[in-house]
Amino acid sequence: MPPTSIGDMTETAVRAGAAVALSGLRKRFGEVRAVDGIDLVISPGEVVALLGPNGAGKSTTVDMLLGLSTPDGGTISVFGKAPREAVVAGQISAMLQSGALLDDATVAEAVGLIAALHRKPMPVAQALQQAGIADLANRKCTKLSGGQKQRVRFALALVCEPDLLVLDEPTVAMDVETRRAFWNQMRAYTDTGRTVLFATHYLEEAEEYADRVVLMRSGRIVADGSVAQVRAAVSGRTLRAVVPGAHDLELPGARSAERRGDRITFTCTDSDATVRALLQRYPHAHDIEITALGLEDAFLALTGEDN
């Protein structure tokens, strides 16, 4: 698609009231193209997972969206405004990946400081309540567990009542239990119609909590759609079987085969054809198992490096 029409598309999206409209976004650090031409439109109310391995460009994209760094090329619009304007208006807010807590302040003081700077903040007590840390108000920020700290960062992010909340790897320091509790809290928040964009490399989080998954790899978007759509983008199934003495593994319908002892795993485009050919050639093949690709396989297939 020529660049002008992408621009037109974004312009239309902005007019239509998109929460986020990125067009031809680029950022390089020296020789590395961290973000290499991203087009993305997010509608109000969507919960979008930005999924990708480390170094895919997720954090760089998030930083530009928040106005923390300037793109080398392309445009960003947040509710029709430049990122910094949207920050000043309190429309976009973010839960940062690490740090960001004062060592000499209590939880309520830290949230109070940020609230004091915003134009229309919610009461501090309400922010603490919504983040599930009302009981920690007078605790020193240094005396918190990893999960508690993350909830304080959540409170810092939502005290300005943003329309768009950006979370950069929100559950990275949490155990399974805390992570579940955190997402329950988040779900209560998104149910009120807020737009959320979260970067993660936990597939199950994207699968469970996002309406939409945007897969990034090497600074580009490689897939974008609902969880089901992304999974379908890598069509096909996996066929596993124990085939003693197999020598020729080139079978119709199979894209590749991997052998571990007698156990063979075929990645199939047409598993029906593969299973017929397999049984014809090796009638003694047993323990045959055919499974659909999970999001994880789709993720690996789409984000894995080319060899």
């Binding site: 690490s98 700077l117 134009r119």
Partner: peptide, 10 residues
């Protein structure tokens, strides 16, 4: 990283 948090305010 507190300064970064402050940059997300007016």
């Amino acid at each position: 990283g507190w300064q970064k948090q402050l940059r997300l305010t007016p």
